[in-house]
Design a protein around this nucleic acid. Structure first.
Lengths: 150, 150
DNA sequence: CTTGTTTGGTTCGATATCGCACTACATAGT
DNA sequence: ACTATGTAGTGCGATATCGAACCAAACAAG
């Protein structure tokens, strides 16, 4: 038994899958009708990583096909939450920017999540989360570097 | 600062979301065309938890709407990977059973994942996974118990 | 037993995801 | 410059997800 048991990986990925489901559901309960987690992910990415990303930047960051990103962005653009401008450095691509409405919506969603975070803070030991975070990051990086390619 | 920083939760859920994406992609690369992760989840559930589950049992276990489960099962049934029988205890519901083909497919998929697990074993410290697993389970249970309801 | 409510499952319509094919622009090799 | 190959983005078709509405069986209250 020189290998970690396959069931260990299975269990970890299984738990992660369920947690992803549950946390996504919570997030989506705090989003306006018609918008879902990927829309939030884009608003959040533009705020944190910086506006002026290209669609492909974000597709790669989220590991989704570029066609999915096109679709997600079109939903955001239709609601005036982002706007796109041509990329002066590359005639094929676009740069994506938040509108004021987009920035405001992201802030509102995060603010409305405060009670959920409070519940978590009260009911769950934050130290444990702090302990697993670096391992999760490491695992994410490992998987990211070893992915076959989408 | 009596609260754990909201960013901590954010980061944890963010990493979990990305890991879920990446691990799901790996799994689906090892599945026959037309079948995706939810199909595997059902085959796996029936094997582990026991055959003869109802669709609602599984919808709850996976935290998906029952309509999604109907759809997933119909895909499996169309390929003769599961079969359903009436529930003798409840005229409204069905019981789901694996076919031999379903059992075989699950086994084949798991077997074909062995190289991926080997890569993980070699490149990633199994002890770290063992350490985070109980925290993930705890977090999953906490979220599960506190969910608003779907 | 009758009635009102709950629960398991399906159908349907709207939106999402994703692979494939395609266009336009970019870049490398000669 | 010319051609070949690569890359960003879109259009389209197939399947997936999910909420709303619906039906039938179960169950609870009287």
């Amino acid at each position: 038994m020189q290998n970690p048991e396959p069931p260990l990986f299975f269990q970890v990925f299984n738990e992660i899958g369920i947690i992803e489901q549950l946390s996504r559901t919570i997030l989506e309960e705090h989003m306006p009708k018609g918008l879902i987690a990927p829309h939030f992910a884009v608003l959040n990415h533009l705020t944190r990583v910086g506006e002026g990303s290209t669609p492909m930047d974000m597709a790669r960051a989220f590991q989704v096909p570029k066609t999915s990103m096109t679709h997600t962005l079109s939903g955001l653009e239709a609601r005036n939450l982002v706007e796109t401008r041509p990329n002066p450095k590359d005639g094929r691509s676009k740069l994506v920017w938040l509108t004021d409405a987009g920035r405001a919506l992201r802030a509102d969603i995060i603010a409305s999540l405060a009670p959920e975070f409070a519940k978590l803070s009260n009911g769950f030991d934050g130290d444990k989360l702090a302990q697993i975070l670096p391992v999760l990051s490491e695992l994410r990086v490992f998987l990211d570097e070893n992915r076959s390619g989408k």
